[in-house]
């Protein structure tokens, strides 16, 4: 027997570790509107609901919150349930604690304005720019909304261009259209 190559060949039946002690937990969720990465802190505060790829979202979580990021789907069961109910028209608001900690301070001001846009209505990039006292910053407002860490939960899909066209959406324009249709917005 060649000892060295026998050592190299070693294979065992094993299973992934069961870990406790994470700081941030996430799940990749196939929602009816598209694939979402949902993440929450140990306290259960939702910090991400994103159309971005798993690698991108978890890298952001690691950099901004803690590198102890673990995939733990059951921690996000309630948030998943509410998202699915929302995008299938069975729910109009969320009651999981959520915080835009992944957003920049400017983006937080922008996202804060979304609270004034109720279900079934829309606003414009420019109106938000004016509301936060930066009337010439509608492009920056668009960027901030495009980087919304809490899509759907903070309803950036209700923001349109001044000419009434859809503008952009991280989840694709079809998803934006669908969310607006759900709310009965033409």
């Amino acid at each position: 027997m060649d000892v060295a190559s026998a050592l190299r060949r070693l294979d065992v039946a094993a299973r992934p570790p069961r870990l406790e002690g994470g700081d941030v937990f996430y799940v990749v969720h196939d929602a009816p509107i598209g694939t979402l990465v949902l993440a929450a802190t140990r306290e259960g505060t939702l910090v991400a609901c994103s159309y971005d790829a798993e690698e991108a979202v978890t890298a952001r979580l690691a950099a901004h919150l803690s590198p102890r990021v673990l995939r733990e789907p059951q921690r996000l069961d309630e948030a998943r349930r509410q998202i699915d109910a929302y995008v299938t028209g069975r729910r109009r608001a969320f009651d999981v604690p959520a915080s835009p900690v992944l957003a920049t301070p400017f983006a937080r001001r922008v996202l804060g304005e979304l609270a004034r846009v109720p279900y079934g209505s829309t606003t414009t990039y420019q109106a938000i720019a004016r509301a936060i006292g930066a009337p010439r910053a509608s492009r920056a407002v668009g960027h901030a909304l495009g980087a919304n860490p809490l899509c759907i939960v903070l309803p950036c899909h209700r923001v349109l261009r001044t000419d009434g066209s859809l503008g952009g959406y991280a989840g694709g324009l079809a998803a934006k259209r669908r969310l607006l249709d759900l709310e009965g917005v033409a």
């Binding site: 992934p16 570790p17 870990l19 994470g22 996430y26 690698e55 978890t58 890298a59 979580l61 690691a62 950099a63 590198p67 102890r68 990021v69 673990l70 995939r71």
Partner: peptide, 11 residues
Amino acid sequence: FVGLPPFQQLV
């Protein structure tokens, strides 16, 4: 800031 990847990636 040392840019540690998310722990799940290591797992």
